[in-house]
Structures are given as structure tokens and as C-alpha cells.
Amino acid sequence: MTGSCDNLFPEIKNIPKCKKCGYRTDFRFNNEEFKLKRKTMDYSSTYDGITIVSLKFKEFCNQKKYNNLEFIELKKAPNFFQVYVKGNVIEYNARMKENLCLECNQFESIIGPTINYDKISKPLDKGFYQSDLWFASGNEKSPKIIISPKTKMELEKEGFKNLCLNKIEKSL
């Protein structure tokens, strides 16, 4: 969407980035010139952590009233959208945080995501959630997307292409 871990595409002039470290400061930036290569999947991600969904996925979420999702149309890929979770934040721990930039207050890398189970006291309500930390390195950081057990069942019934759902369980 915007480049690689270390380098942003030079032809995209308006990507918000830190003057000191050079990394993106808006990880939800929409590149209006982005061209989607594979248009057969209902759910996918770019190398720099942007989640892309099909119109079928968007319509399903609207019908099920998942109101905390934001869909941004991809201008060069009709019927496909960037999608983000608004709110519904779950606290995560990181095994390691490296190289804090004092200008933009971002770490270069956040590694080893694990849910802070001590902060979850009951099963998740229906819907989509996101981690409070954005994991990976450089320009590739993105939140972990989590769904409730009920939402998982609804999505599995629909048969979306390329949707990989893993069960997260608290280890005893």
C-alpha cells in the first residue's frame, strides 16, 4: 500500500511520516493509487499491514451490525476496501520493544504479541476487537484483529475466501 518495512514509495508524496525516524505516523493512510493484484479473496493484507476486504465481506458486516468497523473504498479496486476496527481495544503484552523515537513516540519494532488475559474477565461480546499495541517493524506495524466466538461462527458459516480464524485460549 505504501512501501516496505524500511522504505516508503517515493512517488507517494503525502504519506504522514516522522521527520526524525522516517517511519509512517498514520498506519491507516489510504493510497488512492494502490492497485490490488489478487481480486479473488474476501480478506487479505498488504505487506505493510493494511487489511483489505471484499464488498461481500463489507455487506456481511453491515448486515450483522458490526458498527465499529470503518471501510475505506479502494479507488483503483472497485468492490474492495481497507478496513479498520474502531474502539474495542484489548490490552496486549510485547516480548520486546525496540528503538523508541522521541519525536513521534513510536518504537521501531514491537515483537511477540500476547493477550493480557488478566484484563479479560468475561467472554467477548459479539464483534471485532483490536490489540492496543501495533506489532511488527518499521512501516509494517498493524494491530492484531480479534473476533468474538459468536462472530467467528458467523464468519465460518459464510465461507469467505482466505479468512484464517485461529482460536485464542487462555493457557492454565
Rank of each mutant, 00 (worst) to 15 (best):
D125L: 10
G112Y: 09
N105T: 03
K75I: 09
M96Q: 12
F107A: 01
I115T: 05
E156L: 14
Y84M: 12
I111T: 07
S148N: 01
N105P: 01
Y92R: 08
K122P: 01
D132V: 02
W134G: 12
E140C: 13
G127M: 09
G127D: 07
E91H: 00
I147V: 13
G112Q: 10
N79S: 13
I120G: 12
S121T: 11
V89M: 11
G138F: 04
I120D: 11
R95Q: 13
N139I: 08
F135Q: 11
L100C: 02
I146M: 05
E108H: 14
G112L: 09
N93R: 15
M153E: 11
D132A: 02
M96C: 03
K152C: 08
Y92G: 08
E98H: 10
K150S: 13
G112R: 08
I146N: 04
E108G: 04
I147S: 02
K144D: 06
K76P: 00
N116E: 11
N105V: 05
K76Q: 15
I147M: 07
I115S: 05
E154G: 05
V89N: 12
G138D: 03
V83A: 06
D132Q: 00
S131C: 06
N105I: 13
G138W: 04
L102K: 11
G138L: 03
P143G: 10
M96E: 14
K126H: 02
A77L: 06
L100G: 00
I115W: 08
N93V: 12
S109E: 14
K97H: 02
A136P: 03
C101L: 13
F128Q: 01
E108N: 14
I147P: 00
D118N: 02
K86E: 14
V83S: 02
S131A: 11
P123D: 15
K119V: 06
N116W: 07
D118R: 01
S109L: 07
I115F: 02
G138N: 01
L133Y: 14
P78D: 13
E156F: 03
G127E: 10
D118G: 01
A77K: 05
S131T: 07
Q106Y: 15
I120N: 12
I90G: 04
F81Q: 04
I145R: 08
E140I: 04
K144P: 03
E91V: 02
V83K: 03
N99G: 11
N105K: 15
G87L: 11
L133P: 06
A94K: 03
T114H: 10
D132R: 01
C101Q: 10
F81Y: 15
K122I: 08
K75C: 04
K144V: 12
K119Q: 07
G112A: 09
I146H: 06
G127T: 07
G112M: 08
Y92Q: 11
I120K: 12
N139V: 07
P143W: 11
A136G: 08
E91M: 03
S109I: 08
S148R: 00
W134A: 14
F128E: 03
K141E: 10
E140Y: 09
E91P: 00
I110M: 08
V89I: 15
E154I: 05
L155G: 00
L102H: 06
D125I: 05
K144H: 06
N93H: 15
K150A: 10
C104I: 13
A94G: 02
V85P: 01
L124Y: 01
I147T: 05
K141Q: 15
I90W: 06
I147R: 02
F128H: 00
P113W: 08
S142W: 04
K75Y: 06
Q82K: 12
L133C: 13
E108M: 10
E140K: 04
